[in-house]
Simulated assay, not measured.
Amino acid sequence: MTLRINRTVVIAFAGVLLAMATIQSGASIAKQLFPIVGPEGTTALRLGFSAIVLWLVFRPWRAMPEGSDLRAIIFYGVCLGGMNILFYLAIERIPLGIGVALEFTGPLAVALIGSRRKTDLIWVGLAIAGILLLLPDMQGEESLDPVGVALALAAGACWAGYILFGKKTGTQASGGITVALGMTVAAIFLVPLGFVSQGMAILSWEVIPLGLAVGILSSALPYSLEMISLRNMTPQSFSVLMSMEPAVAALAGFLILSEQLTLWQWLAILLVICASLGSALTAEKRQ
């Protein structure tokens, strides 16, 4: 019994880590599309291609939800779509790493509200401290664009809804089918927005291969992995575990872009990693 639970925790932990790695790869490609089709067009490509790939892989028509199940998936899809478009609009105005840190207020709120043990509050506190250290001085000469900050925080609110409704829908069908249906809901209202904003440039041969790569790396694969993880842990455990996201972004900037980090930023990375590992190691006691 103990071995089975430990294996479940490990699978959930590995799924979240792999999801973060693919999202960071997809984000680097998405940034290359901004000058061509803007955040709206990039979001349309990401969600549109993700929905197509997920429908082909998971064939959700075999288990279409009805009634309250359908409503839960619609809310899940709306939150998913809002999270995507708001985040891309935010990082058009503020740095990617800062956008991730600000967006993370949503999952942290879920973790804090859902806490039932003192140890949960310890991990949340460590994660919050780390994220605060990653933020720049808002009063300095290089203060952030306030609109970009507001958009990132709004994306965080959608992320919180994505976690909560994702956990609710995860018990209704397979994780893949749930993600496919949720992605379809998001694509229905955001793909037309992309065409209205950017026109037929979205369908140029220069853009389509990159859009397909973004769709798979940034949505289809990581959201499927996250749904698997959500089915095997509580929402607050998932939220704190995902606090590694800003650290992954900071490390990617160092390894890929040769961005130098300060001592305080390295300390921030250590704090969020400790919070994530602590949450994973104590997850067995909460299940």
Results as ranks from 00 to 15, higher is better:
M244K: 03
G156F: 11
L241V: 14
S224L: 06
Q32F: 07
V248D: 00
R286D: 04
N6I: 03
K31I: 11
R46S: 07
R4P: 03
F189T: 11
G38Q: 10
P222F: 10
V272S: 00
Q198K: 13
E259L: 01
N232C: 00
S229M: 08
N6K: 11
G170E: 03
A154E: 09
F238S: 02
G199D: 08
G26W: 12
T171W: 05
Q32G: 13
A252C: 07
G48M: 05
D145T: 11
S25D: 08
I23A: 02
G182Q: 10
I74Q: 04
L70K: 14
G114D: 03
S258K: 14
S276L: 01
W159G: 01
P209F: 07
L134S: 11
L89K: 14
S243K: 05
G170I: 03
T22H: 08
L18F: 15
L135R: 12
V78E: 00
S237A: 07
F104L: 10
G175I: 10
A275R: 00
I208V: 15
Q287M: 06
E259G: 00
R62C: 06
G130A: 03
P146K: 05
S239A: 15
P39A: 10
P235R: 04
L18H: 04
A249P: 08
I131P: 09
G253V: 06
G77W: 09
S258C: 05
L271P: 08
P246C: 01
F13R: 01
D145Y: 13
T234P: 01
W205Y: 11
I216Q: 08
S237E: 04
M20E: 15
S279F: 00
G156M: 04
T8E: 00
P235Q: 06
R71K: 15
F189S: 05
E142L: 14
I36F: 08
G182F: 13
G253I: 05
F34N: 00
A249L: 04
G182P: 13
G148D: 09
A101Y: 11
L96G: 04
M227K: 07
T43G: 02
I256M: 10
E40F: 15
A152D: 06
F195C: 06
K285C: 00
E66M: 14
L225V: 02
A72V: 13
A150Y: 12
V272W: 08
L132I: 15
G253D: 07
V149K: 08
L241C: 08
T262H: 10
E284D: 03
A27G: 03
T171I: 12
W264S: 14
Q265M: 03
S229Q: 07
G106S: 06
L70G: 06
A180S: 14
K167I: 01
A27F: 12
S229V: 05
T234Q: 04
S197P: 09
S243G: 10
R59L: 14
